[in-house]
Design a protein around this nucleic acid. Structure first.
Length: 260
DNA sequence: AGTCCCCTGGAG
DNA sequence: CTCCAGGGGACT
């Protein structure tokens, strides 16, 4: 579920609570996570909580890096959770408790040593995209599929890939290398804009409201999605009906009038 | 790029 | 019952 803006929102919420706190205990409630968490040494002082793409990295002063990947349905909650929330792991800090809640059990956790682990991610999209034109020119992948490839650029998932293409006015099915220079420049501008807007609004909440913010409250200012999940609904810009297709096994939504 | 897989639940 | 879901890895 969470893409870059949602993970960034979690990390910003958790960072002041976690950084500088003593990590006192780590508990794996899910058998699948037990193997990766049993090696965790505690206590240790936590000094860094970072986001890399859609991953959360926790560094402790004993040199361990804990990499938490929420995948589809995972989230990190601080403090108490609903009784029906599926808690898969818990990190008890001197300042409070952090829980990995994950209905579908797709989230993964790993513990590494020897420097920040290489996650095989491409560059962060909020740290400059000057490299984008040259790289897009070398790929024949459809632009929307390219945006979702974490090795190419980190953190963009199925929702924001569709929203970015919409904002850029580009048909998501077009090969990356066939974008014209002005269109690539639009991508350079729009990618950080869409992600920053979502971060400013504390992530996206779908109409069904399943996604909840790390603190427990729903994003009050949840980003209004233009096309994602709106097949057959009017495009907010031109009123044409939003189209849907499947690319790389994932749903793509776009406005065939606004996006060429 | 397609297909199957991991897992659980909701919608139709 | 079938299909679908914001993630991604393996294998073709």
């Amino acid at each position: 579920m969470p893409e870059l803006p949602e993970v960034e929102t979690m990390v910003r919420f958790l960072r002041p609570r976690v950084q500088g706190a003593e990590l006192e205990e780590v508990v794996a409630y899910d058998v699948a996570l037990r193997a990766s968490l049993r090696e965790t040494r505690t206590p240790a002082k936590a000094d860094l909580l970072l986001r890399r793409g859609k991953h959360v990295l926790l560094h402790t002063e004993d040199g361990q890096w804990t990499v938490i990947h929420p995948r589809m349905s995972g989230r990190l909650a601080w403090g108490q959770v609903d009784p029906d929330d599926r808690v898969r792991a818990l990190w008890r800090f001197s300042t409070g408790e952090m829980r990995l809640v994950d209905l579908r059990r797709l989230a993964t956790v790993g513990v590494f040593e020897g420097g920040e682990p290489a996650l095989g991610l491409g560059p962060e999209p909020l740290e400059g995209l000057a490299w984008l034109p040259a790289v897009l020119a070398r790929s024949r992948m459809p632009i929307k599929v390219w945006l979702m490839d974490q090795r190419k650029v980190a953190g963009i998932g199925n929702i924001y890939a569709s929203e970015i293409c919409f904002r850029a006015g580009i048909d998501p099915r077009r090969p990356a290398c066939e974008l014209r220079n002005v269109e690539v420049e639009r991508m350079v501008e729009v990618i950080p804009t869409v992600l920053q807007e979502a971060i400013a609004r504390q992530g996206t909440t779908l109409s069904d409201g399943r996604y909840r913010e790390p603190g427990g409250q729903r994003g009050r200012f949840a980003l209004q999605l233009a096309v994602y999940g709106r097949e057959g609904a009017p495009c907010p810009v031109c009123g044409a009906l939003v189209s849907r297709c499947v690319q790389a096994g994932r749903s793509t939504f776009w406005c065939s009038r606004c996006q060429r």
